[in-house]
């Protein structure tokens, strides 16, 4: 047998043998390729997945309690804000509603008042608690918060939709489709947001290039929120109070006339038409740009507001409250407007 093998090797040049040897060992290392396989689930975190409507975009600044954060793509840029917030404990509906309600000027809800606004909606195979909230500080304002709460055993998932009312109406079908597509599953590991937390941070356009200002020293700083970029209040010794806010929204938010009429109604004054605007409006300069100044004074309540439209956004600087105190603070309000700076020039 050996002779046969040896004969077959006879005449084989030695370098060929060496080459064969080298090839044998070099081919021993496996050629690597992308592998794909199935495993039993080992991820024990919460699972939250969704399908976004085409005209929605994800906000990159996802932080804090948010598992997801989106905006609606409009001609004027990103608008509105939709969130996905997990709550570890079975948080009560009242607790969540009050958290948002306070921001919108609601008194704290009790069980009875909550039941008046609480609805139940079945979307797909999921049942949601459905709570629409409108801006109470400014009833004529179109700002709105729509809360959808999904209860799952010990887990509650909140989907807040914060936007102007027309936008919410326009996107209602998409919001429902989004809720239908949502997959949520509680995990073993703790979810970061265990308790009701602050509302999602404002869109980057507001926070990144936000203005600065100098407020009078006796103005007391309030808490900024998703609605308010700046917030102050003023009190006198008689308990009279003024509320000052700085807000910003994409677009013109209905235009000057709509906003002026909304504010006039807040202090009990009659609405006006285009020709009547001049009796309330004058021009003021804010950081080198022309803005509209509204002086709306009534017997009990007065409101001063500046409307500035810049970079496709509306900026409102508004102080409102008891008339006598408002008149005293009018000068401070105008002085405040002089200090506003957008740091872009």
């Amino acid at each position: 047998m050996f002779t046969t093998v040896a004969k077959s090797l006879n005449g084989l040049p030695p370098f060929l043998l060496l080459q064969a040897f080298a090839l044998t060992f070099s081919s021993c290392s496996e050629e690597k390729e992308i592998s794909s396989y199935e495993i039993s689930p080992e991820y024990d975190g919460p699972v939250v997945a969704w399908k976004l409507p085409e005209n929605w975009g994800e906000n990159p600044d996802l932080s804090g309690p948010m598992a997801g954060s989106f905006h609606i793509k409009t001609e004027l840029g990103p608008s509105g804000r939709i969130g996905v917030m997990p709550f570890r404990e079975a948080v009560s509906t009242r607790e969540v509603v009050n958290m948002f309600g306070r921001e919108l000027g609601y008194e704290n809800f009790d069980q009875n008042s909550l039941e008046l606004i609480l609805q139940t909606k079945t979307i797909g195979n999921k049942s949601f608690e459905w709570i629409p909230l409108t801006d109470q500080t400014d009833p004529a304002e179109s700002r709105m918060v729509l809360l959808a709460l999904l209860r799952k055993e010990q887990e509650t998932w909140l989907f807040p939709f914060i936007a102007d009312s027309p936008l919410i109406t326009q996107e209602m079908n998409n919001f429902k489709k989004f809720l239908k597509s949502v997959v949520v599953r509680a995990g073993k590991v703790p979810i970061r947001a265990r308790n009701p937390a602050a509302l999602p941070s404002p869109p980057p356009a507001q926070s990144a290039n936000g203005p600065t200002w100098e407020a009078p020293t006796h103005w007391i700083q309030g808490k900024p929120s998703s609605m308010r970029i700046g917030s102050f209040y003023v009190r006198d010794e008689n308990g009279n109070e003024l509320d000052f806010s700085i807000t910003s929204f994409p677009g013109d938010v209905g235009g000057v006339l709509a906003n002026v009429n909304r504010w006039l109604s807040q202090v009990g004054l009659d609405k006006v038409d285009e020709s009547g605007l001049a009796s309330y409006l004058s021009t003021v300069e804010i950081d080198g740009k022309s803005a509209q100044l509204l002086i709306a004074e009534n017997d009990d309540k007065s409101l001063y507001a500046a409307l500035l439209f810049r970079d496709d956004r509306s900026w409102f600087f508004k102080i409102m409250g008891e008339s006598s105190l408002a008149k005293i603070e009018k000068k401070n309000f105008l002085g405040f407007l002089d200090t506003v700076c957008f740091h872009d020039h």
Binding site: K32, E33, I34, S35, Y37, S40, P41, Y43, V47, V183
Partner: peptide, 18 residues
């Protein structure tokens, strides 16, 4: 890893060599 399905997860892995 696709973890959406509660019963089975799909894994696709790209090795270091690639």
């Amino acid at each position: 890893t696709n973890v959406t399905d509660a019963s089975q997860n799909q894994v696709v892995a790209i090795p270091q060599e690639l």
